[in-house]
Simulated assay, not measured.
Amino acid sequence: MPFKNREEYGGTSGHRQSRTETAVHKIESLILQNEWGDGERLPSQRALAEELGVSRPTIREALVSMEARGRLVIQPAKGVFLSGPGTASGKESATGVKVQASANLSGRESQMYQFRYAIEPAIAGLVAVNATAAQVEDMRVVVASMRRALESRDIVEFSRLDFTFHSQMIEAANNRFFTEAITPFLGLFFESQTLPLTFDESVQETVREHEEIMEHIREGRSAEARKSMEWHVRCVARRAGVNLIE
């Protein structure tokens, strides 16, 4: 899909933006320049990354952030679309974040939890032994930010950070086979992580589970990190109304 990109991008005066924020602004500029309207499909993540000079993980985070704000709709296996009539799925909360009732879960979502249960514990075990010190620190910062988002009851930021953490885990395994296998399903990953969007005890449990995973990763305890991630995915699925069979 050809598109215009005439602008040279730079930071805004006096304000240092994160890489994700910068990518969001670049994508928004492309939308304006090309006059893309509601319901229009955006270029692929690869095309956006190459055109904007941004890494694909950063593009993914930017798209997820924009979806959390109600700007985009990510449809697994179909693409990313500007929000508009016929593009939304599920209902929207007061914050603009999509919420899907567990009673309406389709077989696809149940299968994604099963996929996560099989794959993510293995990834966590690899992260404990393969991640660089910088990657471990990045994940630690995200988990600490999740705790702050919980305390401030910022549901949009919490959802974004939750997705960011699991995306970082995939990268920090430093195994290209996992990265290439999971990348096409990241949109559905995000959807499965944001089904139960209420600030109650279950969200506090989610943060504690992430903190436990990070403790094992920092100590290089592969088996324990694997078990903690296995428990986390089981709990997330249960909170969404999906009972996993071991």
Rank of each mutant, 00 (worst) to 15 (best):
I217F: 00
A173G: 07
H15Q: 13
A237V: 04
E67F: 04
R153P: 01
G84N: 06
T87A: 04
D38T: 15
S18N: 05
N130Y: 02
H210M: 03
S29A: 13
K98Q: 11
E137W: 00
I217E: 04
F177Y: 12
V97C: 13
Q45Y: 08
I59F: 02
V141E: 03
E8R: 14
E180P: 09
M139I: 05
Q114D: 10
R46M: 14
E219N: 14
A118F: 11
A23S: 09
T206N: 14
M66F: 00
L197F: 11
R221S: 08
E50L: 12
L30T: 03
E67M: 10
S13P: 09
T198Q: 15
L42C: 04
M146F: 02
M146G: 06
L186R: 09
R116T: 07
P2F: 12
R140G: 07
Q168G: 08
L195Y: 15
I213Q: 10
Q114P: 10
L30K: 09
N174R: 06
R234Y: 12
E28R: 15
L126H: 05
Q135L: 00
S228R: 08
L195S: 09
Y9N: 08
S167V: 02
T179A: 14
E40C: 08
S93C: 06
S89Y: 15
N175V: 06
V142Y: 03
G241M: 02
F190W: 12
D138L: 04
M146W: 03
S228G: 02
N5G: 04
G86W: 04
P2A: 10
A149T: 04
L197Y: 09
T22E: 15
M214P: 02
R16E: 04
V54R: 00
P121D: 01
L197I: 03
K4I: 06
A68V: 08
M169W: 02
N104Q: 13
H25T: 11
